[in-house]
Design a protein around this nucleic acid. Structure first.
Length: 426
RNA sequence: GUGGGCGUAGCUCAGCUGGUAGAGCACAGGAUUGUGGCUCCUGUGGCCGUGGGUUCGAGUCCCAUCGCCCACCCCA
């Protein structure tokens, strides 16, 4: 048997419906705020990510799907979306269009990692990027878009965590200060943090080990050390969000794994998955485009992990999407075939979801089949009905049925709306 | 990359100290002619992950290998 590549997965119906619905909501919400879709290659030159994401990051050092093509060029399956957007911004001259540029993307990313729950080698991301605006308002807008999207999906327990990473110039100063404050407790830190001490001191901040957590809690937050301008920037963002009633939790220890972030950084976590499994991550990246050889255009954006999002989707949303019930059409004779399809065309034209029996089942078997599908009604078309130009419409919940002329069928079925939510489906 | 658990039907699993494979669910059909849900009957479906070894004989014992899952790490 040929099996799927490790870390990839098959998304089957009905779960695929949830994905489609989530994406539809994203297009609706982000589109409403002026964001337009950008579709980019899954394959990029390796150098893009080395320079964009950062040479020392875990993503670049050990998580990239990199290989040589037939002419020996090093290519990489994109591990994230922002670098590609920045590349396109430069290459396609998006700076020549009205600024700022509002873009969103939906699609798979690839990281060569050992997988576990909520972590795959191919995973879906939905992200937006706002390019060409450096103001706190830009940040507020992006967070607003995020919040609106999550709200549209019915989430009410997700937490947006916000921190200020300062400007790159602040970084050495902060690292020095951190090490200074941590030095007395250095030997108390966990083994991983001992390693991080030299490799990536900032990562000690969001260590989940209790003892480390306690030690780190005593250190001075980055936000208190960053320079005046960067500090004011994020404080203004926080105030802006507060004014909109968007709840944000300050996260002084929040650090992100990609090098290009500065100032505003944020993550969304779910109480269900715990803080270890981030659903959305984002932040400001004012140097990225210039670092890649483009103009000095600031940017901010985020990426939502679609797999994880679908995993914790509120029950109300799941029910709304999965709970639709079709109308089954059962032709009982050869001469009923054409009328059955005609009827299907008629009903679908009214937004009624149908399912036509095409395997030649008996009426009895057809009704069993309809029940298994969770159909709300069956349209029975036998010789008698065809002769009379009618259909027998059977309500599968009440077990009652009536003769309805084919023309009136849509109207009768529409009395309860085109789709009637069913009892809860798995 | 490190550590642990598990591979028998589409799914969940049983199969004792070795004797050539089972259940439930699911799927398909039927139980009076054109009427579902409950019940009953029948059927489809497995080279027991793969390869090798021990043995008269391996789902069962041994070795290897592949795959899956969980945790760490990191992230979406």
């Amino acid at each position: 048997m040929i099996r799927k590549v490790k870390g990839t997965r098959d998304i089957l119906p009905p779960e695929s419906r949830l994905w489609a619905a989530v994406e539809a909501e994203a297009r609706r919400i982000f589109g409403g705020l002026g964001y337009e879709e950008i579709r980019l290659p899954l394959l990029e030159p390796t150098e893009l990510f080395v320079r964009g994401v950062g040479e020392g990051t875990d993503i670049v050092t050990k998580e990239m799907y990199t290989f040589a093509d037939r002419k020996g060029r090093s290519l990489t399956l994109r591990p994230e979306g922002t670098a590609g957007v920045a590349r396109a911004f430069i290459e396609d001259g998006l700076a020549q269009r009205p600024q700022p540029q509002r873009l969103y993307y939906i699609g798979p990313m690839f990281r060569y990692e050992k997988m576990q729950r909520g972590r795959y080698r191919q995973f879906g991301q939905i992200g937006i990027e706002l390019l060409g605006a450096a103001t706190p308002s830009a940040d507020v807008e992006v967070l607003l878009a995020l919040h609106e999207f999550l709200a549209a999906l019915g989430f009410d327990d997700l937490i947006i965590m916000l921190n200020n990473l300062g400007d790159p110039e602040d970084r050495p100063r902060f690292v020095a200060r951190l090490k200074e404050e941590l030095a007395p407790h250095k030997h108390e830190l966990c083994r991983d943090c001992q390693r991080r001490w030299d490799e990536n001191p900032l990562r000690i901040l969001d260590c989940k080990v209790d003892t480390c957590h306690a030690i780190v809690a005593e250190t001075t937050p980055i936000a208190d050390i960053v320079s005046g301008e960067a500090r004011a920037h994020v404080e203004t963002v926080a105030a802006g969000l507060d004014a909109l009633g968007i709840p944000v939790q300050p996260a002084p220890r929040l650090v992100r794994g990609l090098d290009y972030y500065l100032r505003t950084v944020f993550e969304v976590v779910s109480p269900q998955l715990g803080e270890g499994t981030v659903i959305c991550g984002g932040g400001r990246y004012d140097r990225l485009i210039s670092d890649l050889g483009g103009p000095p255009v600031p940017g901010i954006g985020f990426a939502i992990g679609e797999d994880r999002l679908v995993d914790v989707l509120p029950q109300t949303f799941r029910d709304r999407i999965l709970g639709t019930r079709p109308v089954v059409i059962l032709p009982l004779a050869a001469e009923a075939t054409a009328p059955a399809f005609d009827c299907a065309r008629n009903l679908t034209g009214h937004g009624i979801e149908v399912r036509i029996e095409v395997t030649g089942r008996s009426l009895r078997a057809g009704l069993k089949w309809a029940t298994k599908l969770g159909a709300r009604a069956a349209v029975i078309l036998g010789p008698d009905e065809i002769a009379a130009g009618t259909a027998t419409l059977r309500d599968l919940d009440r077990g009652e049925q009536e003769e309805v002329s084919l023309e009136k069928l849509p109207a009768v079925l529409m009395q309860d709306g085109p789709e009637v939510p069913s009892r809860r489906l798995p």
